[in-house]
Design a protein around this nucleic acid. Structure first.
Length: 402
RNA sequence: CGGGGUGUAGGUCAUCGGUAGACCGCUGCGUUUGGGACGCAGAUGUAGUGAGUUCAAUUCUCGCCACCCCGACCA
């Protein structure tokens, strides 16, 4: 991608009222644009990051047997009345359809997937089943805030697992937890598995919390055994070892639940067992906020100049700063090598502007090409200070270590 | 939803009871070119919105709307 063609350009100043770090940097660098409180457009750079995160999530979901599909955003209100959540789900977006029919914008999909499966699941032979989607969700938060961390419309991966009994579900739940840990490791963010309440879904759940001062959740972490627990259910001492708890601010990027039987009952999601008896399906649901992860990464990885993307989710791997009209040859060679590269080919701005934009956008490797460097390329990692001069062959080794 | 704040050019802000100005950005020309260069010339506004007060309102008053912050809430 040539920078001269990229939409949009970076901003020198932040729009009024934008205060949280992720909001400021993502707006200034041209990753997102706010349309109203809690609603954003993901601009080309931002969408690339969202796709990178989604693909990592997708790969790990597939590894634990997940089958991807896409359910509707628009739900029949009737289904939500069946589970009682038409009234109980505080942040539910409700609207009227043709014929004055009650409709709901999906904040989660139990009310779709349970009746869906009720049509297909007949026998224990149809189970277990693991289905997921990556989709825009709607929650009418009383107060949207902190950039993409708390929005009314957001992108989420939701996996649902269905089993013949709780034991099988609990085994899979552990597998899903491991998958989440792998995902977060690949995203290069550290998250603590945190005991939490289950809300309308279950009695208890586990959250994946990224510790950062800008987090809006308060969790307690045991100083002895590192057990983490959400403030909402925390007692005085560590429930595991009795150790002292330390308070931390954190961002909840994921939440997994063993689902209570109420949903299976509401939609009569049952099957015939090996012994010929009708039994209710046991289920779990596993959410991960893809757009929120993007914000959390920026909160964790930035400096006073801009974003510092982990390689796994960066919109590009290499950012070529072309000076003195140079750089096109290197750009084409890197493209030919299959490297994701952003080439600042502008001829009408100073070097300083290009460096500032490179730092702001936060691509992992910056390569300066100029008359001054002659045949050498000047490489600098965004998260390091030192630069080194290399040949093109050496550059490929640097960015693609074997 | 309670409390507070803010709405003026594309962005950041100033101004002020007599219908607007700076900087950034944008356009053109020229000079520049390794950390947000410079000169000259130019374009860009229903001052959020509605009402009230007034000879006159962007300015004062009230309603509404939007956004931000704190709190409550937060599968």
């Amino acid at each position: 991608m040539k920078y001269s063609k990229l939409f949009p350009k970076t901003l020198k100043q932040v729009p009024t009222g934008v205060e949280s770090i992720n909001h400021q940097l993502l707006v200034r660098a041209g990753f997102i644009h706010q349309e109203m409180a809690g609603v954003y457009t993901y601009l080309p750079l931002g969408w690339k990051v969202i796709e990178k995160i989604s693909n990592i999530v997708r790969e790990e979901m597939n590894k634990i047997g997940g089958q991807e599909m896409l359910m509707p955003v628009l739900h029949p209100g009737e289904n939500w009345k069946k589970t009682g959540r038409f009234q109980n789900f505080d942040v539910l977006f409700k609207l009227k359809g043709a014929g004055d029919k009650d409709l709901v914008l999906g904040p989660t999909h139990e009310e779709i997937i349970y009746p869906l499966l009720a049509e297909y699941i007949k026998s224990y032979k149809d189970l277990p089943l693991y289905l997921y989607q990556i989709q825009t969700k709607f929650r009418n938060e009383p107060r949207a805030k902190a950039g993409v961390l708390r929005t009314r419309e957001f992108i989420m991966k939701d996996l649902y697992s269905f089993h013949v009994n709780d034991e099988d579900r609990n085994e899979y739940y552990k597998l899903a937890r491991e998958a989440y840990i792998k995902i977060l490791r690949r995203l290069e963010i550290t998250a603590l598995v945190t005991k939490a309440s289950g809300g309308t879904f279950s009695d208890l759940s586990e959250e994946f919390q990224v510790i950062t001062p800008s987090g809006e959740d308060t969790i307690f972490v045991c100083e002895d055994c590192q057990m983490a627990i959400n403030k909402e259910i925390a007692q005085e001492k560590c429930p595991e070892c009795g150790g002292k708890l330390k308070e931390e601010k954190a961002i909840e990027v994921g939440n997994i639940f063993p689902l209570k039987p109420a949903y299976a009952e509401a939609f009569d999601l049952s099957f015939v067992s090996e012994t010929g008896k009708k039994k209710l399906v046991s289920a779990g649901c596993y959410g991960l906020g893809v757009s929120r992860v993007m914000g959390a990464i920026v909160e964790v990885f930035h400096d006073d100049k801009g974003i510092i993307w982990p390689e796994s989710v960066a919109p590009f791997k290499v950012h070529i700063v072309g000076l003195d009209g140079e750089g096109d040859k290197v750009y084409k060679l890197l493209l030919a090598e299959g490297v994701e590269v952003l080439f600042d080919d502008r001829v009408d701005v100073s070097a300083g502007v290009k460096f500032a934009d490179a730092d702001l956008i936060g691509v992992p490797y910056r390569v300066v090409v100029s008359k001054k460097t002659k045949d050498q390329l000047e490489v600098k990692k965004r998260n390091e200070k030192e630069t080194k001069f290399v040949t093109l062959e050496e550059l490929l080794e640097v960015i693609n270590p074997i």
